[in-house]
Amino acid sequence: MALSDPRRTVGGMCRSIRTLRPPYAEIVTQDDMRAAALQYVRKISGFRQPAPHNAAAFDKAVETIAAATEELLSTLEVKGRVG
């Protein structure tokens, strides 16, 4: 399938978002959450590195998403987990 194939995209965005960790991990570090947030912001913005005039907005988005990730992970309930 070509990258431009509509079956590979959702609303123009590539569907190949990789899982950064197993479905459950006992310890998820701040670095893990920030790396996931950075990957998301890069993917959604289309920029690996923002231009200087967009750096503040880019950094704020990463921090906001990292905080939302921390909140999400702290409220998830994993049922049936042995340990």
Rank of each mutant, 00 (worst) to 15 (best):
T9W: 12
Y40E: 01
E71A: 10
M13K: 13
G83K: 02
G80N: 09
R18G: 03
V41A: 06
P23S: 03
A51Y: 08
P22M: 08
V62S: 00
I44V: 14
P22L: 09
R15K: 15
G11I: 05
D59P: 00
A35L: 10
R18I: 11
G80A: 01
C14G: 10
N54P: 00
T9V: 11
Y40I: 07
R81S: 02
V78F: 15
Q49W: 08
A2G: 12
A61L: 00
M1A: 14
S45A: 04
R34W: 10
H53W: 15
A66W: 00
A25L: 11
R42I: 02
Q49M: 07
A66R: 02
G46K: 01
L38C: 07
R48Q: 09
N54S: 11
G83Q: 04
R81P: 00
K60S: 07
Y40W: 08
V62G: 01
F47H: 13
A57C: 04
Y24T: 01
D5I: 04
L72V: 06
I65T: 05
F58N: 00
A67D: 14
F47P: 01
Y24G: 01
R18V: 10
A68T: 03
G80Y: 06
C14T: 13
V41M: 04
Q39M: 04
E70F: 08
M13R: 11
L72W: 03
V82A: 09
D59E: 10
A56C: 01
R42T: 05
Q49N: 07
P22E: 13
E26G: 02
M13P: 01
A66Q: 08
A55E: 15
T69S: 12
R8G: 10
L73Y: 11
A67P: 03
T19H: 09
D31A: 11
A61I: 00
A36N: 01
F47I: 03
G12N: 14
A35D: 12
R8N: 13
V10T: 10
Y40H: 10
R8M: 06
G80L: 01
A37M: 05
R81G: 02
Y40G: 00
E71V: 02
R15E: 13
Y24F: 14
E77A: 09
Y24H: 15
A68V: 09
V82N: 07
P23C: 11
K79V: 13
A66I: 06
R81Y: 14
S4N: 07
E26A: 13
T29N: 06
C14I: 14
S45C: 05
G12Q: 05
A51L: 13
